[in-house]
C-alpha cells in the first residue's frame, strides 16, 4: 500500500514541478503611502530589498508542504490555519484538477505564508514595501495618479468575482520586473495586523478605525485608490489563521551583502 503510494508520487508531482523562484531587486526610494497615519499621508524612505517576481503558486506550495508535513492540511493545528486551509485542493498532497499549478496558491493562513517565506530564506513584505512596488506599472514607478490605471485595476478585480485567481504571468511585469501585484489577488503582508486595526486581530479596547463607515474614509490619505482600499478591507477582516479564496502571498528578501 505504502509502496504503491510512493510510486505514484513522481507522476503526481510532474505537472506541479516547481521552478526556482525569481527575486528581483527593488531599489531604495522615497514613497508616499495612500494610508494616513494620524491624518497625514505617510512619507517614507524605503531601503532596498528584493521581491519575488510572482506570487507563490500551487506548485510551489505543494513542494513546501511535502517537505514540511506540519503544514499539510489535516496536520496543521487549527490555531495556525483555519478550517478552510487549502480547501480548494482535492487532497492534502493532491491539488487536483480544479486548480492549476501556475495559479497563485490561496486559502493559506498568514502563519503558513510566513513559514513558507522562511523556508526560502525570505520573509513576508511589510505593507509599505508591498504598496511601494504595487504603485508601479509597466512604464512608471508611481502610476497611482492615473485614473485610467485605477479604473483598469478596479474592472479587473471585479471581473473575476467569485473565482479563484487566474494564472500568473499573463500581464506585463512592472518597471521592477514584478508581475501580478494588483489584479489577481490580495497578498498577505507581514505587518497586516498592526497596520489595519480591526476588532478580531487586536487587543481588546482599541479603536477599530477601518471597520467603521466614517473611519474607513479617514484612514486613507489618498481616497481615490479604491483597489487599494478593497485590499486593505479584505486583509483587515482576517485573523492570522484565517484563509480566503483570493488571499495568497509572495515573499521578499534583504539585499545580498556584497
Amino acid at each position: 500500500m505504502i509502496s504503491r503510494q510512493l510510486a505514484l508520487i513522481p507522476m503526481l508531482m510532474l505537472p506541479f514541478a516547481g521552478k526556482a523562484a525569481d527575486y528581483v531587486p527593488i531599489p531604495a526610494g522615497q514613497f508616499e503611502s495612500a494610508l494616513a497615519i494620524a491624518g497625514h499621508a505617510a512619507k517614507l524612505r524605503l531601503a532596498a530589498f528584493s521581491m519575488r517576481s510572482e506570487p507563490v503558486t500551487n506548485a510551489e506550495f505543494l513542494v513546501f508542504v511535502r517537505q514540511h508535513p506540519e503544514w499539510q492540511r489535516g496536520q496543521v493545528p487549527s490555531l495556525l490555519a483555519g478550517a478552510n486551509y487549502l480547501r480548494q485542493w482535492q487532497r492534502p498532497l493532491e491539488p487536483g484538477e480544479s486548480v492549476l499549478p501556475d495559479q497563485p496558491v490561496t486559502q493559506v493562513s498568514w502563519f503558513a505564508a510566513r513559514a513558507y517565506c522562511g523556508s526560502e530564506q525570505a520573509r513576508l513584505p511589510n505593507w509599505y514595501e508591498w504598496e511601494y512596488v504595487g504603485a508601479a506599472d509597466a512604464t512608471r514607478a508611481d502610476a497611482r495618479r492615473d485614473p485610467v490605471r485605477n479604473q483598469d485595476l478596479l474592472s479587473a478585480i471585479e471581473g473575476t468575482s467569485g473565482h479563484l485567481p487566474g494564472v500568473i504571468g499573463t500581464r506585463p511585469a512592472n518597471v521592477y520586473g514584478v508581475r501580478d501585484l494588483n489584479r489577481l489577488l490580495w497578498e498577505w503582508t507581514g505587518d497586516y495586523a498592526a497596520m489595519f486595526p480591526n476588532p478580531d486581530a487586536r487587543v481588546p479596547g482599541s479603536v477599530a478605525n477601518l471597520a467603521l463607515c466614517s473611519g474607513s474614509a479617514l484612514a486613507f490619505a489618498d481616497k481615490n485608490q479604491y483597489a487599494l482600499m478593497m485590499r486593505v478591507a479584505a486583509l483587515s477582516a482576517l485573523r492570522p489563521a484565517d484563509t480566503a479564496p483570493r488571499v495568497g502571498f509572495r515573499c521578499v528578501r534583504e539585499p545580498k551583502r556584497k
Binding site: 476588532p199 478580531d200 477599530a208 479584505a234 483570493r246
Partner: peptide, 23 residues
C-alpha cells in the same frame, strides 16, 4: 466572495450601527 463585508443598520443605537461587530 473576494471582499470582506459588514452591516451598518440605521436602526441600531451604538457605534457604527453594528459595522464594527460584523466585519
Amino acid at each position: 466572495s473576494h471582499m470582506a463585508h459588514n452591516i451598518d443598520l440605521h436602526a441600531v443605537m451604538g457605534p457604527g450601527g453594528g459595522a464594527v461587530s460584523t466585519i
